[in-house]
Design a protein around this nucleic acid. Structure first.
Length: 251
DNA sequence: GCGACAG
DNA sequence: ATCTTGTCGC
């Protein structure tokens, strides 16, 4: 399994190679973007068509079954939702998450009518022992640009302490000896998508990393653009609650 | 051998 | 991931 991950890492592209404008990703609705970009003569179909499709993927679990939910957003609006329920055979093992959850996610993505410009995956991408986390695995399988958004750090080390940082703050994650690449290589970022202003409690940062065909710096910018007042990017957040709803119906 | 460890 | 009430703050 580890050798397969090395092959996936070899196939992965950790540079920008996607066909949309990152600036067109804002959480503003297509209609709002349209108004902003509308010309006096007004051909108003272009801005919608040019707005990238971002698919959020998340899962819930129940009785050794995975409920994989996918929500596709275009400029902040849901354009498609789909899901798949799959039996789980492999247990969770740090570093091998893609073998447990990859199949179920692929099953859900295959039922999609549209084809997304970007996949937003819950879990690490390049922040992984062999640089082939779940987001990378999925991205390479579909050869679609992808990014990984994790709530915890698997490996690597933040350049600065991540404790109690303000909204918008970020710091690079450097490869350490646990990562299969040059020491000090920037493999991701800790990104504080949200923080309480004046409170006793505080929010932990997200750990974002390239999946496939996205550079590390672009990855943080994309996540920043996809967040809309909540800790998680909108596509992920909506996929998360959709998975919870499906699970509730199933229980 | 010991510690670390996405979801 | 999952099991779960109250509680603090805008």
């Amino acid at each position: 399994m580890e050798s397969l991950q090395r092959e996936i890492a070899d196939d992965a592209v950790f540079d920008d190679d996607f066909g949309f404008d990152p600036a067109a990703l804002s959480s503003a609705s297509p209609a709002a973007q349209q108004q902003l970009t509308e010309t006096p003569t007004g051909s108003d179909t272009e801005s919608i068509a040019d707005t990238p499709l971002v698919a959020g993927v998340d899962q819930a679990f129940f009785d050794d079954q995975a409920i994989s939910a996918v929500v596709v957003l275009q400029g902040g609006e849901v354009v498609e939702r789909t899901h798949a329920i799959t039996d789980l055979s492999i247990p969770y093992i740090p570093g091998l998450l893609a073998f447990r959850e990859g199949g179920p996610i692929v099953a859900a993505l295959e039922t999609l009518d549209c084809d997304p410009d970007l996949l937003c995956v819950d879990g690490s991408g390049r922040i992984h022992y062999r640089q082939a986390g779940l987001a990378t695995h999925i991205g390479v399988v579909f050869d679609t640009p992808s990014i990984g958004v994790a709530k915890n750090l698997l490996c690597g080390s933040p350049q600065e302490s991540v404790d109690d940082r303000p909204t918008g703050w970020r710091t690079p994650i450097e490869a350490d000896d646990a990562v299969d690449c040059a020491d000090g290589m920037i493999i991701g970022y800790a990104y504080q998508s949200r923080q309480y202003e004046s409170s006793n409690r505080h929010i932990n940062p997200l750990y974002v990393s390239p999946g496939h065909r996205v550079a590390v710096d672009t990855t943080v910018d994309l996540v920043a653009a996809l967040c809309d007042g909540y800790k998680l990017p909108e596509p992920t957040r909506l996929a998360d609650s959709y998975a919870d709803d499906l699970k509730a119906e199933l229980s």
